[in-house]
Simulated scan of single mutants.
Amino acid sequence: MRVTADRLLGIVLLGLAALVAVQALQWQIPFSYEPVGPRAFPLGLASLLSILALVLVFRPGANGHWPHRALAVKLLMVLVLLVVYATLFTRLGYIPASLLAATILARLFGTTWGKALITGVLMAIGSYFLFTSGLGISLPDGYLAGIV
């Protein structure tokens, strides 16, 4: 069995799924939720990720080659952007952090600054209202909201 990029990615994702499952199982919830608790979502995601990772391990695609250097750098930049977004999410608030992340992500994949900014604004504000009004999820306002 030749270790291709797909198989290696499948093994890494399988390890990530195991880590998520172990962390979810260690949650101690002080009160009961009905009918399922907060563990169900991460365990469900870990199960789905495990199944898809096993597909990559046992049935890699025909093009199981490493990406070109330019694409690999772009993907690494996306990963760094997502880590920065997760870090700034509560500090800046949902809308500014999402606006920044969506705009930079659009620019990273070759759109103009104008289109990237429009995309960022629409995605940040649209998803904010979808989460808060449509789903009833409260999102962080950030430290800037306390100043204004």
Rank of each mutant, 00 (worst) to 15 (best):
residue 1 M to N: 14
residue 2 R to W: 13
residue 5 A to P: 03
residue 5 A to S: 12
residue 6 D to K: 06
residue 7 R to G: 01
residue 9 L to I: 15
residue 9 L to R: 04
residue 11 I to C: 05
residue 13 L to F: 05
residue 14 L to F: 04
residue 16 L to F: 06
residue 17 A to F: 00
residue 19 L to V: 11
residue 20 V to F: 04
residue 20 V to S: 06
residue 20 V to A: 10
residue 23 Q to D: 15
residue 29 I to P: 02
residue 30 P to N: 07
residue 30 P to M: 06
residue 30 P to C: 08
residue 33 Y to R: 14
residue 33 Y to L: 13
residue 36 V to S: 05
residue 37 G to P: 03
residue 38 P to C: 05
residue 38 P to V: 13
residue 41 F to D: 05
residue 43 L to R: 10
residue 43 L to C: 07
residue 43 L to Y: 02
residue 44 G to P: 01
residue 46 A to L: 04
residue 46 A to I: 01
residue 48 L to M: 15
residue 48 L to E: 09
residue 50 S to K: 02
residue 50 S to N: 07
residue 51 I to H: 04
residue 54 L to S: 06
residue 54 L to N: 01
residue 55 V to R: 15
residue 56 L to G: 00
residue 57 V to Y: 00
residue 59 R to N: 13
residue 61 G to V: 13
residue 63 N to R: 14
residue 66 W to L: 15
residue 66 W to F: 11
residue 67 P to K: 10
residue 67 P to R: 12
residue 67 P to L: 07
residue 68 H to K: 12
residue 70 A to P: 07
residue 71 L to D: 06
residue 73 V to S: 15
residue 74 K to L: 07
residue 78 V to P: 00
residue 79 L to N: 14
residue 82 L to V: 14
residue 82 L to A: 13
residue 83 V to I: 15
residue 84 V to M: 05
residue 85 Y to W: 05
residue 85 Y to T: 07
residue 85 Y to C: 04
residue 86 A to L: 07
residue 90 T to C: 10
residue 96 P to M: 01
residue 96 P to H: 00
residue 98 S to T: 08
residue 100 L to C: 11
residue 103 T to F: 01
residue 104 I to W: 10
residue 106 A to S: 04
residue 106 A to F: 00
residue 107 R to G: 08
residue 108 L to G: 10
residue 108 L to C: 11
residue 109 F to M: 07
residue 112 T to R: 08
residue 113 W to C: 02
residue 114 G to V: 09
residue 114 G to I: 07
residue 121 V to E: 08
residue 124 A to H: 01
residue 124 A to V: 03
residue 126 G to W: 07
residue 128 Y to L: 11
residue 134 G to W: 03
residue 135 L to E: 08
residue 136 G to F: 03
residue 137 I to R: 08
residue 140 P to E: 02
residue 142 G to C: 11
residue 143 Y to A: 14
residue 143 Y to N: 15
residue 145 A to Y: 03
